[in-house]
Design a protein around this nucleic acid. Structure first.
Length: 661
RNA sequence: GCCAAUGUAGCUCAGUGGUAGAGCAGCCGAUUCGUAAUCGGCAGGUCGUCAGUUCGAAUCUGACCAUUGGCUCCA
């Protein structure tokens, strides 16, 4: 047989040769340096027989990313071996330690186990020590293939339902391979690879992070496995850097900053996922709403207001109850009528559309509302402000004709982009979520042709708009495809921020119609859009995005006035009144503290500007100020300072330029 | 929802069966100060809740509540 090397040269090898054999044939230096291989571009290991005629590249330490991927995968096996060792040492039967899967993930690896006892965080240290011993033992890995029947018989005999299921689900004809390390007394796993050739080739710069529950194959009806997570890097510095980044992320976690900056609280007596906005947090909400109202007014939206509860029949008509009941607060019954808290505004807006006959001249009709909705999210899914049960939607519904759809859709996407620019949001993914045919009639309304047509309309609109996006199956809303904008929280969890959903189904259920230019009744399309998500999630995200250092226009307190001595308190209050009259949010620190302490408090509170007021300033009608974005300044006329702040608050400047320049 | 960990003063935390502690924040007083913590005093807790074991429970047991991590990355 033969393979082709990266330079195009043909290399002849014996039948069944592996990448290790190929490396040896090329030269002893390469054989020593080889850790893995790329076979027709795909990452592979040294142990797998090469197919005929492939392009082969040997992976060495220089191919850092590839090596790390192989190492992380092998680390998962080393972890599994360590777990079995540890439990067997405690007297558990080897067969009682069952292995699920152990893949490579971002930053590291995990392995899922079904164990005779629960692992605790304290176990991780012992497991790490065992892993290091296995690495130091430099156990060679051996790969071998087994016929399907034999493999099944082997695991059935072991009474291991997980591996049996995995093999059964493999398509006929796929090679079933095992990787063994440390011989018969070591560890063997059903695995397709690829791995490093020896446990000694594994990076020692790893750390076990946590134990967590995870459903077998991600299915909540299946057994709960115990998952151990680990991170691994090529160097000690990278591992340390990663751990440092985790620390940094915790520092900007909106739950921590939300408490430190007095933005919101969650109170046990109020209930999980029901945040209370403190005055400082309410300023953020108010500023966001003002922004949205300005933008939407300019874009031709009309504001409406609707109740928080309604009769059951509204949600039956909308189709929410059959599809969405699990996420709704249970009903309250009054005089034999059931009422529900609203999980969404749309049914109300549909009723507003239907409140009078509509002409094609009324379209597009854009109705917006900042209504509070209530969703009974799974308790385990709640997280600070990012996932809550009471939320202020930045919501609107656009009723339009099919001909108007593309322009309306792109106008909404454009609105997102302007918001993102204003907030300096650059790190996001636009996701085009489509239906899955097998969910029709269950997760999705049963209209196969309409699905395909609206998905095509949406895709075309995105392409015409030159928007970068990824397509995802089986993530659509029940009434149509949608665009989600995914962002990451400080601690790396993904959330949907903006959303833009096409609804071809619910307007018909509400019998919404308009009279077209040929005097025909027609059903409008509806676009659901929430470019700023909910106020809760947006603000949660912005806290982390800005690490609490809000741009001036958003900052709960824009100017802190620090009088140097008691005799400066009254003039300070005068200055505060002046700032307030100019529309600036300002506080005086009249506490009986030294100036340094007051400055420190203002800095820790992340107030954008701190004005120091003493005899000199009062005398000359000047301020001395500290800003979080420019060096300390003295002797600035009050009027100049004030005008600078007022101007940039008005412009919603993201990053304040130095005063005067 | 499920698996696990955690829960002591507003915040951060100490206290492992024998009289609940510290620092910061708060209040009072002194100090009146020029760019990141002045000094002294006082006050503050049903130890998440409820039940149990015990002569005695923050501490041991159970249930519940809340918070946190995880439950997607296809052997």
């Amino acid at each position: 047989m033969h393979v082709f090397l990266p330079d195009g040269q043909r290399l002849d090898l014996a039948h069944g040769a592996t990448a290790a054999d190929a490396a040896a044939a090329i030269g002893p230096g390469l054989a020593r340096a080889a850790v893995g291989a790329r076979v027709d571009g795909a990452l592979a290991d040294l142990l797998t027989p090469l197919p005929e005629g492939v392009r082969l590249a040997i992976v060495t330490k220089r191919d850092a990313d590839d090596v790390l991927t192989l190492q992380r995968h092998t680390l998962a096996h080393v972890l599994a071996q360590a777990v079995r060792e540890a439990l067997v040492a405690e007297g558990h039967a080897p067969d009682s330690v069952r292995m699920g899967i152990g893949p490579v993930i971002e930053h590291g690896f995990y392995y899922d186990f079904d164990l005779p006892r629960t692992l605790t965080p304290e176990d991780l240290e012992d497991l790490e020590a065992r892993m290091r011993a296995i690495i130091e033992a430099r156990l060679p890995l051996r790969r071998y293939e087994v016929p399907r029947d034999e493999a099944l018989a082997h695991w059935r005999a072991q009474g291991d339902p997980y591996k049996v299921e995995l093999i059964e689900d493999l398509p006929e004809g796929v090679t079933i391979s095992f990787y063994e390390q440390g011989g018969g007394d070591g560890f063997t796993d059903l695995c397709r690879g690829p791995h490093v050739p020896s446990t000694g080739d594994v990076t020692p710069h790893f750390k076990l992070m946590s134990v967590a529950g995870a459903y077998w194959r991600g299915d909540e009806t299946r057994p709960m496995m115990q998952r151990v997570y680990g991170v691994a890097f090529a160097t000690a510095e990278e591992l340390e850097h990663h751990l440092w980044q985790l620390e940094e992320a915790r520092r900007r976690d909106h739950r921590k900053l939300g408490a430190e900056l007095d933005l919101y609280v969650l109170d046990e007596d109020v209930g999980p996922g029901l945040p209370l906005w403190l005055p400082r947090g309410a300023v953020l909400v108010e500023q966001i709403e003002r922004l949205a109202k300005e933008m939407e007014e300019a874009a031709g939206y009309q504001q409406v207001r609707t109740p928080h509860v309604s009769k059951e029949q509204l949600f039956l008509k909308s189709g929410h109850l059959p599809y969405y009941a699990d996420s709704m607060y249970p009903p309250m019954e009054l005089e034999h009528v059931r009422y529900y808290m609203k999980p969404m505004n749309c049914p109300f807006h549909h009723k507003i559309f239907a409140a009078r006959p509509r002409s094609y001249r009324d379209l597009p009709l854009r109705l917006s509302e900042y209504g509070t909705c209530y969703r009974y999210e799974d308790s385990g899914a709640l997280m600070g402000l990012m996932r809550v049960r009471s939320m202020n939607m930045n919501d609107a519904h656009i009723y339009c004709t099919e001909e108007q759809f593309e322009a309306e859709f792109l106008a909404v996407v454009d609105l997102y982009l302007r918001y993102f620019e204003l907030f300096g949001i650059e790190d996001y993914v636009m996701r085009f979520s489509k239906h899955a045919p097998d969910g029709l009639g269950k997760k999705y309304v049963d209209e196969p042709e309409l699905w395909l047509r609206t998905e095509e309309m949406t895709r075309r609109a995105l392409q015409h708009g030159g928007i970068n996006f990824v397509e995802v199956d089986d993530e659509a809303a029940f009434y149509g495809p949608k665009i989600d904008v995914q962002i990451r929280s400080a601690i790396g969890r993904e959330f949907t921020l903006a959303t833009n959903q096409v609804d071809f189904a619910v307007p018909a259920r509400f019998d919404l119609n308009y009279i077209d230019e040929h005097n025909q009744r027609r059903t409008p399309l509806c676009l659901h859009r929430a470019p700023l998500s909910t106020h809760e999630r947006l603000i949660g995200f912005l806290i982390e995005h800005f690490a609490g250092d809000f741009p001036l226009w958003l900052a709960p307190e824009q100017v802190r006035i620090v009088p140097i001595a008691d005799r400066h308190v009254e003039p300070a209050r005068g200055l505060q009144a002046r700032f307030r009259a100019a529309g600036l949010r300002s506080e005086v620190d009249a506490s009986n503290e030294r100036m340094q302490a007051k400055i420190r408090d203002a800095e820790l509170y992340k107030v954008p500007y701190t004005v120091i007021l003493g005899d000199k300033e009062i005398e000359a009608e000047e301020v001395a100020f500290r800003s979080r974005q420019e060096p300390e300044r003295r002797g600035v006329p009050v009027a100049v300072f004030e005008a600078h702040l007022v101007e940039h608050a008005r412009l919603r400047t993201l990053s304040m330029p130095p005063l005067g320049g």
